[in-house]
Nucleic acid binder design. Structure first.
Lengths: 145, 145
DNA sequence: CTCCAGATGCGAATGCATTATCATCTGCAT
DNA sequence: ATGCAGATGATAATGCATTCGCATCTGGAG
């Protein structure tokens, strides 16, 4: 199992070089230059296997489809740009006191922090006129690489 | 428009008395005693209108369908019990320094904090054997009221 | 070089939350 | 009490992310 096909290599490479969580569609686009015939189903199949193997992990944000990033990264939070819909890593440390207001009996096992705003690319102009939701996160517009 | 039907009253009442965000299915169950014939479609229709009217707002958690809570509540975070899948309000204040690690050019407009763990009800036993995902959040098991 | 288990591509299929359709019903203004 | 705009209930339909089925292709062991 786990042959080194061009598709799989392209998928792993895009995840490794993105430095931010990628959606299956973003991965598809990022992998296409290296594996032109690659298919969304293959992306999903590969992501599933890589997840099972513990090499990557799913990143779920509110109202968003799962994105994927390398496993084993130090704990970090995420920033979602609501102009280009890309998600970036935020290396900042965890604030304490998050669980202060909890009633007794509640036990916190984990937390998720998501910042929402505009990224450096999209923030240059105050408002971006023709910007519709869910662009394809084109590599030409990428700064995470 | 906006007649005072038993269904609408029941929906508003459950949201008002829950003190935690409710999913459409939870609202349906909570409203049934007061409006036995109520239908999921009606719940969705009513939620949509209440949202448009600014009376309630959607609460989106990662990988979860939207829940709804009264609008105008003071800013708070949410706690999701992964045993009973209910979501509770966390009144704690916002930790600062959340955006410290951000590269320059990134502007934060909002943030979301979700704590995950076990609630007081579910935490009594260390492991709950027969507990499958997505119970119906039965009122008998409710403490938020 | 051969061969085949495993991988891929394509399209159809699934599961889900949410919305639309439409005939029927009901607040409520008159 | 009446009439009707608006609301409801039942169900079909939509949109979407994700998965399946299957014929074809291919990495890599032999």
């Amino acid at each position: 199992m786990d042959r080194h096909t061009s598709q799989r290599i392209a998928i792993e490479t895009s995840l490794r070089s993105a430095h931010r969580p990628l959606s299956p569609a973003e991965i598809l686009d990022a992998a296409k230059p290296d594996a032109p015939t690659i298919n969304l189903a293959t992306v999903y199949r590969t992501l599933k296997r890589l997840t099972e193997n513990g090499l990557i992990r799913a990143v779920d944000l509110p109202g968003e489809p799962s994105r994927y990033e390398l496993a084993g990264l130090p704990h970090h939070h995420h920033f979602k740009c609501d102009a280009c819909d890309r998600v970036f890593d935020v290396p900042g440390k965890c604030p304490s006191g998050l669980a202060d207001g909890l009633p007794s009996g509640f036990r916190v096992r984990d937390h998720e922090v998501v910042l929402v705003g505009t990224c450096a690319d999209c923030g240059h102009a105050t408002t971006r006129p023709g910007r519709s939701r869910r662009p394809r996160a084109s590599p030409s517009h990428n700064r995470g690489t």
